[in-house]
């Protein structure tokens, strides 16, 4: 009946989902957990990926222009700060304001030194993508066996 592991995995996956749905039925059905843009302590959410000779970093920055962001790099120290201010549009009454406002800053210590001159940053759909090439000294090197 089950010829592959993925079949068993699939079966359990479906059962898990059913159980979750039943668990949620009374407590918070249709009420997913809240996510806010900043983490509780005021940090932006960030992902760091590594490949052989570069880091890639992604940060959630919804609704921010490139002018509102400030990126600084020194060696392996990266600091991202910015400001988000969206004012209440004129003549509107406020019902709810959950989106956070104000200044923020987050700093990272990267595992290796970065070549600051070749860093690229792009902003797309509210996510900031940073490509951070490692500095020459930090790059992996092929060693020839003599």
């Amino acid at each position: 009946m089950f010829t592959r592991f993925s079949d068993i995995d699939r079966l359990f996956g479906t059962m898990d989902m059913l159980r979750q749905r039943l668990d949620n039925l009374y407590t918070d059905y249709n009420r997913p957990y809240r996510s806010t843009w900043l983490m509780e302590d005021g940090f932006l959410r960030a992902n760091l990926y590594q490949s052989g000779d570069a880091f890639e970093m992604r940060l959630e920055v919804p609704g921010m222009d490139k002018d509102a962001l400030d990126i600084k790099i020194q060696g392996n120290y990266l600091e991202i700060s910015g400001k988000r201010d969206h004012n209440v549009p004129d003549g509107y009454k406020v019902h709810k304001t959950e989106r956070l406002n104000g200044t923020f800053s987050r700093s990272f210590t990267l595992p290796d030194d970065v070549d600051g001159a070749r860093v690229e940053a792009t902003l797309k759909d509210g996510v900031l993508y940073l490509t951070l090439p490692k500095s020459e000294a930090a790059k992996p090197r092929q060693i020839a066996i003599s």
């Binding site: 699939r10 989902m17 957990y33 996510s35 806010t36 209440v88 549009p89 509107y92 709810k96």
Partner: peptide, 19 residues
């Protein structure tokens, strides 16, 4: 045919204004 995995659900932060 059956779904086995779902994306996490998150509630986005919203502002609501009215005029």
């Amino acid at each position: 045919i059956e779904k086995t995995r779902e994306l996490y659900e998150a509630a986005p932060a919203v502002d609501i204004y009215e005029n």
